[in-house]
Design a protein around this nucleic acid. Structure first.
Lengths: 153, 153
DNA sequence: AGATATCACTTGCATTCTGCAAGTAGTTAC
DNA sequence: GTAACTACTTGCAGAATGCAAGTGATATCT
C-alpha cells in the first residue's frame, strides 16, 4: 500500500487544519452573525455592515456548509428565503469567537464598551451558556449589537 | 469637523478588527510556532512543516511586527540570526489559539491524540498558565509537538 | 586570507483569490 | 400581469499567493 494521494492538509496540527476551514477574513464574521446577531438570510449577512461582496459571501456559505458548520432550510412562509443555521459543529466555535472578541476589544481600538468586555471576561462560561441556549432554543434575539461606532463607554 | 478620512476598519466590531490583524491562513501558525514550539528564527518558521513560502513568511512577520504582536532582536552570539519573540499583546492570543486547537481536534481529523485534548479541555487555565510562564521566563522548550502524522492515540 | 556556507530575506513571474458591478432565476406582492 | 424581492452567478480588473531563483550580510572552514 502506497501513500500516493495528494495530502489534503498542510500538516496534522489541529490549529492548521482549523485555519484551513475558517482562516480568512470573512468566515468567522458570518459565524458571528449567526451566533450572536440572529442573522439568518443571505441578505442579512450581506448588509451586516462589513461590506462583503455577494460572490465571496456565496462562496463562503458554500464552503462552511461543505465543512458541516452551517446548514440550510427554506423558509416555510416565504420560499424565496433560505435560512441558515449553525450545526453543533458550528456552535462549538463559540469559545473561539469569544476569545477573539475579548482579545480584539482589549488590544485594538474597537467599538465595544470596556465594561461589557470586563463582564464577558469575568463570566466566560455564563456568556457561552447563554449563546448555546439561544442556539438550542432557536431564540432569534440578538445577543450582541453590531458595534458600528467607535464609541468607548 | 468632518469625518473625511477613509475608514481604517470594516466595522467597529472587535471580531472584525481582530480578523484584519490575524485572519488569514498563516499568521496564527507563526504565532503558534512562537508560543508552543519554541521556534524563534525565520528558518525555523520556514521549515515548520506547513510549507509557507518565504515571501509570504517575510510579509506576515512584517505585518505582525507592525501590529505589535511580535518583536525582534539580533542573536548576540550569531549576528546573522534575527530572533523573534511574542509581545504581551502576542502572548495574549494564547486563549484564542487554545480554543482553535481544541475545536480542530474535536471536529476535524487531526494528528492530535484524543487524551491530550481531553486533558487540555479539562485544564484550560493550567495549560494557559504554563504557556504564559514559558513566555515570561523565555523557556525555549517546546510545549507541543508538530503533530506531523495523522496518528490517533 | 579566501572560499564556502548560512541566514534572512527580495525579486520575478504565473496562478489564484478578491472586490465590484451587473445580470439572472425563482418566488411573492400588488 | 407586472413589479419587486431573494439568493445567488458572471465577467473583469486588481491584489494576494506560490514557486524558484537571487542577494547581501555574517560566520565557518581550510
Amino acid at each position: 500500500m502506497v501513500e500516493n494521494a495528494k495530502p489534503k492538509h498542510r500538516s496534522g496540527c489541529p490549529v492548521s487544519i482549523s485555519l484551513e476551514v475558517f482562516g480568512d477574513r470573512w468566515s468567522l464574521l458570518i459565524i458571528r452573525d449567526l451566533m450572536v446577531r440572529g442573522y439568518r438570510t443571505f441578505k442579512e449577512f450581506e448588509h451586516s455592515g462589513e461590506g462583503i461582496a455577494t460572490n465571496i459571501l456565496a462562496h463562503r456559505l458554500k464552503k462552511l456548509r461543505a465543512a458541516g458548520i452551517i446548514e440550510t432550510e427554506y423558509d416555510l412562509t416565504d420560499r424565496r428565503k433560505l435560512k441558515y443555521r449553525l450545526t453543533p459543529k458550528g456552535i462549538a466555535l463559540a469559545p473561539v469567537l469569544l476569545e477573539i472578541l475579548i482579545w480584539g476589544a482589549r488590544h485594538e481600538q474597537t467599538g465595544a464598551p470596556c465594561r461589557m468586555i470586563v463582564h464577558m471576561e469575568a463570566n466566560r462560561e455564563a456568556v457561552l451558556a447563554e449563546v448555546r441556549r439561544r442556539w438550542q432554543e432557536r431564540d432569534p434575539r440578538p445577543f450582541l449589537p453590531p458595534f458600528t461606532s467607535r464609541a468607548r463607554v
